[in-house]
Simulated scan of single mutants.
Amino acid sequence: MPSRSEVLRLLDAGLDYAEAGRRLGVPAGQAFLIATGLPADGGGALTAEERRRPGMREGSTQHLSNPPARSPAGREHVRVWLRERAGRDGPLRRAAEARDVRPEGDRAPEDVRELTGLLTRDHDRVTSLVKQLNAVPGGTKGGSAARAARRETLVGLIAEALASHEPAERQHLWPAVRNALEDGDRLADQALEQESGAARTLARLERTAPDTEESDHLAQRLTEELRRHVAFEDAVFARLRKTLSEEERERLGAKVARAWTTAPDRAPDARGARPADRRGTEREE
């Protein structure tokens, strides 16, 4: 344990409590306690005499009592241990595999009809699926057959959501952007180009066996493409909220919601090639 004189000597040398604590191997709040005999979070109740103690600092010392938290899960060897431990937990693994991966709640609830709010909600639902996809170990991380099947299900759900989301945007959102914003043609063209790129990546991902290295790479690419596209649309939405009236946005939102409900369901084999036709999977005769 550092002594009071050691802490005060470092303070007299011009160091703050954070650096003094680091050099002495103790938290900053503990260094303050050693130097002053007072807790760092008691500044609001100090007497005049206590404020004159050696080692006291001007202003609040509250921050010294709450050092930054460091999560051990941020270290790769800890994450490896957690994955291995979870993999050996049979009940936990079976519960995770049985959990419904579909986003909860209505896609177009009665209290959400405004265009940008409705599309943002749908973006969140797709993002939730993409996060789940990236959380399931793939071919490069030793994923099991059950996990490969789960990844395949998630890819199908992403494709299913985008199969009605993007046509509705093309029919109702982007024409409104072209008409309402001065640079609407440029914005709409850029958005449609982004959507086309993500659609090509998704199509390749659907045709690729889920337990392969290529599937992992395509999933990561799709994640980045969708992230950029959602950020782009969020910026467009902010401008639309300033340009279009709420009544107009609600009218367009109702059209989008109606387009979703009338969109044809995708056939089981419309999400890509049959598993036996996927690259990396042998055809069974």
Rank of each mutant, 00 (worst) to 15 (best):
P2F: 04
R4L: 12
L8Y: 06
L8R: 05
R9K: 11
L11R: 07
A13T: 06
G14W: 00
L15E: 15
G21A: 01
R22L: 06
A31N: 00
A35R: 01
L38W: 05
L38H: 03
P39G: 13
G43N: 06
L46F: 04
L46W: 05
A48P: 10
A48H: 15
E49L: 09
M56E: 10
R57H: 14
S65N: 05
N66E: 08
S71Q: 08
P72Q: 15
V78K: 01
V78F: 01
V78T: 03
V80F: 14
L82T: 01
R85V: 11
R85M: 12
A86V: 04
R94V: 10
E97G: 11
V101G: 10
R102T: 12
R102W: 10
E104H: 13
D106G: 09
E110W: 14
V112S: 07
E114H: 05
E114L: 07
T116I: 08
T120V: 11
R125K: 11
S128K: 09
L129G: 03
V130I: 12
V130M: 06
N134V: 11
N134T: 10
N134Y: 10
R147T: 09
T153Y: 08
G156R: 00
G156S: 03
E166M: 15
E166C: 07
A168Y: 02
H172C: 02
H172A: 05
N179G: 10
E182L: 13
D183N: 03
A188N: 01
Q190H: 10
S196H: 11
A199P: 14
A199Q: 15
R200G: 11
T201I: 13
L202P: 01
R204W: 09
E206W: 14
P210L: 04
E213K: 15
Q220F: 10
T223R: 12
A231L: 15
A235T: 00
F237V: 04
R241L: 06
R249D: 08
R251S: 12
R251K: 15
G253L: 09
A254T: 07
K255Q: 14
A259N: 02
W260Y: 08
A263K: 02
P268S: 04
R271E: 14
R274P: 00
R279M: 14
E282C: 13
E284C: 09
E284R: 14
E284H: 14
